[in-house]
């Protein structure tokens, strides 16, 4: 009885916990938008930057060789990351 109860309750608990966590952390995970100036078409483009890219860091965040910026402007902060 106890075993059957656990066999049903445990997976249900795990699934509910995982789904709840997925939605709960969804709002907290913010992906820094990166902007780069594409010289071939001479205009600014926006992409979601890779994980860890923000306004502080040692290594530049690049996309196809272009430096990513926090805003579509060369005057804005170049995005960088802590790990290469």
């Amino acid at each position: 009885m106890k075993s059957n109860f656990l066999k049903l309750v445990l997976p249900a608990f795990a699934i509910l916990l995982a789904v709840g966590l997925a939605f709960a952390t969804e709002e907290k995970v913010t992906f820094q938008q990166g902007h780069y100036y594409d010289t071939s078409v001479q205009q600014w483009k926006s992409i979601p930057a890779e994980a860890g890219c923000d306004e502080d860091g040692e290594y530049p965040c690049l996309h196809d060789g272009y430096q990513l910026y926090s805003l579509p402007s060369f005057g804005s902060t170049p995005l960088a990351k802590d790990e290469p």
């Binding site: 995982a18 789904v19 969804e26």
Partner: peptide
């Protein structure tokens, strides 16, 4: 049972997160 529980949480969590942001995942 504990390992099944942990793997279930990991897989359901990552699957739901991917499906919620499917466009980003695909990108």
């Amino acid at each position: 049972t504990l390992f099944s529980l942990l793997l279930t949480i990991l897989f359901v969590y990552t699957a739901v997160s991917k499906l919620v942001h499917l466009d980003l995942f695909q990108w």
